[in-house]
Amino acid sequence: MPGTADEGFYELRLYVAGQTPKSVAAFANLKRICEEHLEGRYQIEIIDLLERPQLAKGDEIIAIPTLVRRLPEPIKKIIGDLSNTEKVLVGLQLKPHH
């Protein structure tokens, strides 16, 4: 499976609004997936919109939680608590669409 993945560096942002169960779950799921598939070549930045609401516009965020893959380009967005690993991998293009 890692063979199909892009070998570049992954710059990820997770947008949350406070420590809601969905946000906590999303972070846990993301962390796990990254450890499994992108070990050593990813960076996760967590942006809490309750603290920095002005940042929501930059990445055109409307849903919480939203994961944004800023690198590699193109930008991809995955909304939800990332509980479906398969879908997250497809969304991050770590796995081909089928």
Partner: peptide, 10 residues
Amino acid sequence: EETGEYDLEA
């Protein structure tokens, strides 16, 4: 892409 629960809080 959507996976799982979310809301429009943002």
